[in-house]
Design a protein around this nucleic acid. Sequence first.
DNA 1: CTACTTTCTGACCGATCGGTCAGGGTCTGA
DNA 2: TCAGACCCTGACCGATCGGTCAGAAAGTAG
Lengths: 183, 183
Amino acid sequence: MARAVSETHGEILAAAARRFAVTGYRGTSLQDIAREVGCSKATVLYHFANKEALLAELMAPAIGVLRDLDDQLAGRTGTAAQELAAAGFVDLAVRFRREIAVLRGEFPELLCQPAFAHIQEISDRLRDALAGHSDRPGARIAALVLLAGISEACAEFADIPDDELRAALLALVRRAVEPVDAP
Amino acid sequence: MARAVSETHGEILAAAARRFAVTGYRGTSLQDIAREVGCSKATVLYHFANKEALLAELMAPAIGVLRDLDDQLAGRTGTAAQELAAAGFVDLAVRFRREIAVLRGEFPELLCQPAFAHIQEISDRLRDALAGHSDRPGARIAALVLLAGISEACAEFADIPDDELRAALLALVRRAVEPVDAP
DNA sequence: CTACTTTCTGACCGATCGGTCAGGGTCTGA
DNA sequence: TCAGACCCTGACCGATCGGTCAGAAAGTAG
């Protein structure tokens, strides 16, 4: 009972997104995904070269937006960098809540995979921008707390509407970020 | 070549703490721990009933302090609750950085284990206190962002002295927490 | 009809996981 | 001297993991 072309492909992708978000990448087996779709594990591996490729396709849109943000951030300094980093990351985290949830806690290992090359550097630059490119420990610590906390909050508050969550997070960041010294 | 009583026990505990903090609970095998200690996997399971018991003994001190904080928090309201929750959790997170790192991202599954019963409720109460027992979404979101972010920051900034990290985190929390409405 | 492609599957593979077990070495007290 | 407690280990177990493969089923083009 072969289905229409690429229909199963999308179903597998959707099922994987749901499972990964709940039980994590390592905590979800190909068998789990196949069961949710209603096909065999071999079918999953017919549509995707391997488990890693499945994850890579799942994260691609979010990573694209992150790269765009990184490009826009290049060259900006001080308050302008802080503002863009805050607004850009909050928006990204709210829109890609599920993708963010997938990475929860598995960051270090997943970053070793070629599909996620440079993500570590990009998020380092993002953190640096949110700190206003300051090297004061207080500013760097605040930036990390906020970025990590926002990720966690977006993964957790799945029931809050986008607008409301975005507004609350932005207000929090503006309150919490260490102001840059006037030049 | 049997060693002195309980010497190996402590070495296994220390090795497990190190490995768990880096690669997580699920990402660390008993074989990994045994290799780091320089003994066999069977020896690890001679000293600890199972992998879960090893984790439980590792987390016991941190959990004890968390319970104490929860007790002190009971009954307090408004600003007093916020202050104590902030100071108490920041101190706990800084002191037990490694234990906090272990739980990174594996919270939901680990909480199912009997050794961690009620931890979820305690951290819910802690979050509620930090939000000043307010039900405004902004306050609840800020509290979650801060608690999660602090955990992440403590796990990441292993090189910063306790005092400095604690001061920076406390300053951040005081800036970021939504003030409670005056009664 | 036949020949070919696409989709899908059960059976199987090697590796690794947490955990068990019988037994060997060493120390100690009677 | 010798029995027993303590510490430790190699060999092994069943389960599960990601991944492979030959081939069945169904649609399509000639």
